[in-house]
Structures are given as C-alpha cells and as structure tokens.
Design a protein around this nucleic acid. Structure first.
Lengths: 145, 145
DNA sequence: AGATTTAGTTATCAAATGATAATTAAGAGG
DNA sequence: CCTCTTAATTATCATTTGATAACTAAATCT
C-alpha cells in the first residue's frame, strides 16, 4: 500500500480534527483560565491522576512552565496535588471538585455542539464512526510506550 | 445508538490525536517561526489559497492578530499575498517558494516519524486506517459550511 | 557513603499572544 | 447617494508563554 498517500490523508485529517475541535470547543473554555491551562485541565480530566512529568510530555512544555501553570490552577482551586507515598518526589494531579464542575460544564457545551454536528447522521453512520474511531485509536493514535 | 458514549469516545480520541500530532511534529517546526505561525503555515500548505478571514476562523484568532502574524510571515518571505480581482477587499494567501521549501522539509520530518509509528502495521491494518480516516473525515470532521 | 539521576520548584527575562479600539477601503442594500 | 456591512490594517497594552539557570529533595546506582 502507498504509505505516502496515507500520510497525505493523515495530514489533512489531523488538520480537520484540529479545526473541528476548535469549533466544538468554542465558548467552552471558561474565561478565568488560559488556553494552555484549559488544555492541561482537559488532559487531567481525561486521564487523571496524572503526574506533572506526563503533562509536560503530552503538552510539549518544559517542567518549569508546567510547574508554574499547575500552581496557577492550584491557586484557582481547580486541581489538587497528591504526593506519592512510595516515591516522594512524585505527585499525582487530580481535578478538585470545582475543577470537575468546570470541566463537566465545558464538556456539556462541547457535547451539545457535537450533537448538532452529527444531527443528520443515521444509525449506520454512527456505528461506522464508532468503529473508525476504535480502529484509528488502537492502530495509529495509540500511546507511545 | 448511544450518542453519549460516542461523544466520550470522541473526547479521548481527539486527545490522542493531539498528543500523537505533537509527537509527530516534534522537531519539525523550524526555529525561525513561532508555533502559531507554524500552525498558520500548515493551514496554508494544506488548503491554499486561503483568505485571512479563513485563517482566523480556523485558528480561533482575531483579525488583528491574524493580520500581524501574516505580516511577520510575509517579512520572512514565507508567504505571498494576492489581491482578489473581483472583491478588492479580499486577499488570497499562498506559500512562497521559500515557504513551500520550509513546509516540505517539515512534512518530511513528520512523515518519517509517521512511518516509524506505523512500521509494525500490516497491509490489512493500513487499509483499515485509510478507510477509517475517510469515514471520519466525511461524516464527522467535514467542513462546517 | 558518595555520585548521579529523577521529579519538581523558583526566579527571571525576552518574546509571543490576546484583546481592544480606531481606521481604511471596498461592497451591498435601500 | 447614503448607510451598513465586510475585509483587513495599525497601534497599543496587559498577559501568557517559552526558555534558561540555579536549586531542593528524594531515589538510585556503584
């Protein structure tokens, strides 16, 4: 199979995913946090608990900056830091109750945009989408190691 | 079908796409441009010609900021601006030769990371991925209007 | 025990970004 | 012709971000 053609498809696909994600998340981000902070909260929400190191890997940031942003989120009472009892250098980050509330609200907004978007889809379409997501997630967008 | 479950899948899927995209594009961005500028160049590369308005819609920026960033890219000779002959308020943005060269190099880097990632995939897998991308792109990540 | 690595913090500074207001110029509609 | 809207620009300022250096503390290695 032509891997080059597949790559070109992937490029325009990821561009589409980014664009649509932007559209879906429009107005979902609360004003009191920055885009970077929102991205971090989203990562925490999806895969909590999470360590600061994991955050800076996924978000492509440096430790000092991750630390700073986590402090800001902590000051805003949106996250909590838990010390690892085994390895006392490590921390685990979770959403606080307030953080959960904020993210639930954001996800609800995103979901309503999503529902509008798939409004016209048939049962058949939905099934196909679900299977396609599963395939791509396991075969292409799997975690690195 | 449970649209709510599909939505949850979509959330973790888009998170994965973002994370993997980050990994693939690591080291691909030339140092002389910022992340935002790179995103803009990528959009131009994928769907040129493009108007400044389209850019600020897709990138979720404001017109003044889009204009500023395009000026910076123009000063760096990475893009060219072409006036619409019909509607003289409009512009079309394209990559300059230098811009094309830079983006080709970036895409080559990304492609090599991509090839590493799908190294273990069988013919069958590749075909499935391609079909899945097609399905999602037409049924879910289609352009808005 | 001493050296090295790992996880995270603090401080600092330049640069990039976001947001807003004011402006120009060209279309579009009445 | 006049008003309204659209496309884009310029200028400005506060904030956010990125990058780097120096540091603490705990774990691991030898």
């Amino acid at each position: 199979m032509d891997k080059n053609a597949l790559f070109n498809k992937l490029v325009s696909f990821t561009t589409s995913v980014h664009r649509v994600t932007n559209e879906l998340t429009k107005n979902a981000k609360p004003d009191l946090i920055s885009q970077v902070q929102y991205n971090i909260l989203e990562q925490i929400a999806v895969s909590q608990p999470v360590t600061p190191s994991e955050i800076n890997d996924c978000q492509n940031m440096s430790m000092p900056n991750t630390s700073r942003e986590l402090n800001k989120l902590n000051e805003k009472n949106l996250i909590i830091k838990i010390n690892d009892s085994q390895d006392r250098r490590k921390q685990y980050i979770r959403l606080s109750q307030e953080g959960e509330a904020i993210m639930n609200k954001a996800f609800a907004t995103i979901e309503s945009h999503f529902l509008e978007r798939i409004q016209g889809a048939s049962e058949e379409d939905l099934k196909e989408m679900e299977q396609s997501i599963d395939i791509l997630q396991t075969k292409l967008f799997y975690p690195n190691e």
